[in-house]
């Protein structure tokens, strides 16, 4: 198989664009949440400043190798997820490193960062971090189930495991989107999406008022900056998968930005006016509401 080496620099360009878009989007979300609270909100460039500051802190304390690897794994998860799915459909430059079975790899990468973080946070020895990890793993597992079911439904529907081909099957008008051809799968996946975005009502992993602030309690300075970088990339990467699988993908950057923004807004709108669930309540919620829909979606296909 011949490999086009030019895809590597182009995927780095993708990474760069997504990273900046992620930082701005996060600030925009914070601003929207602030406006709901009738505040002015943070400046749009605030995340850049925070990032520079955290990289510029002079001291760091390590709790061992795994503690260091935690954020690295998390970031790898985010970048890996982004690089192995096509960002823009039909573009030779921004298809990244997608290949025939990339859907399975993407499913793996969604979970990868969480596992790495669990490893690192557990090493930090802080009881709140341990609590956050146990909450996070149970919830992510529960939230992943409906998503996996929805992905299988989609894979069955289009008879392929390649994200590119799934997107290709959805071209040619809004009524070709999975959203309309398989609404059950999309419903299950969107419920799972709420759970995996770390926003209320499913933000019990961070939960500042209960276990401040969960896994990243001990992370500081450049470790925290790595996590922040990941927070800019990972949600977008996840949204890209959703966009490709269910919302017809994107063929150019403006459409990409718009779709990512709108999909993210789903979780923001729900989150801004919701308190948070307890961990067993949220797991029950996923098992009762999201998983049956996912199973129905598979049956429907």
């Amino acid at each position: 198989m011949s490999f086009d080496w030019m895809r590597i620099p182009w995927s780095l360009v993708t990474l760069f664009i997504v990273f900046n878009y992620g930082l701005l989007l996060n600030a925009l979300i914070a601003k929207i949440a602030a406006r709901v609270g009738r505040r002015h909100g943070i400046p749009l460039w605030q995340n850049y400043v925070d990032l520079i500051k955290n990289y510029g802190q002079r001291t760091t304390i390590s709790h061992g190798v795994h503690f260091y690897l935690g954020p690295v794994f998390r970031l790898t998860g985010g970048i890996g997820l982004l690089l192995f799915v096509p960002t823009l459909y039909g573009s030779a430059y921004f298809a990244n490193l997608s290949f025939a079975g990339d859907l399975i790899l993407a499913l793996y990468f969604v979970f990868f960062g969480t596992l790495g973080m669990a490893l690192g946070a557990g090493e930090s020895g802080h009881p709140y971090a341990a609590l956050g990890v146990s909450r996070g793993l149970s919830q992510v597992t529960a939230a992943e189930l409906p998503f996996a079911l929805a992905v299988f439904a989609v894979a069955l529907q289009y008879q392929t495991l390649s994200v590119t081909e799934i997107v290709a099957a959805q071209q040619g008008g809004i009524h070709h989107w999975t959203l309309f051809t398989n609404p059950l799968a999309v419903a299950a996946a969107m419920l799972s999406f709420l759970g995996s975005m770390m926003r209320p009502p499913f933000d019990l992993v961070l939960a500042p008022q209960e276990i401040p602030i969960g896994p990243p309690t001990e992370y500081h300075s450049s470790y925290l900056a790595l996590l922040q970088t990941n927070r800019a990339i990972f949600p977008i990467a996840k949204v890209v998968i959703y966009m490709n699988l269910f919302f017809g993908g994107a063929t150019n950057w403006p459409v990409f930005f718009l779709k990512v923004f709108l999909i993210t807004m789903v979780s923001v709108v729900v989150g801004v006016v919701s308190p948070r669930f307890r961990v067993e309540q949220s797991i029950r919620w996923f098992l009762i509401w999201a998983v049956p829909i996912g199973i129905l979606a598979i049956l429907w296909v």
Binding site: A33, V36, G37, R38, R39, P200, P201, D203, L204, A207, Q209, V272, V273, S274, P275, R276
Partner: peptide, 13 residues
């Protein structure tokens, strides 16, 4: 009370 359950916007209002 709202903040303790993760709903910060009530505290703002």
């Amino acid at each position: 009370q709202a903040g303790a359950l993760g709903l910060g916007v009530i505290g703002q209002w």
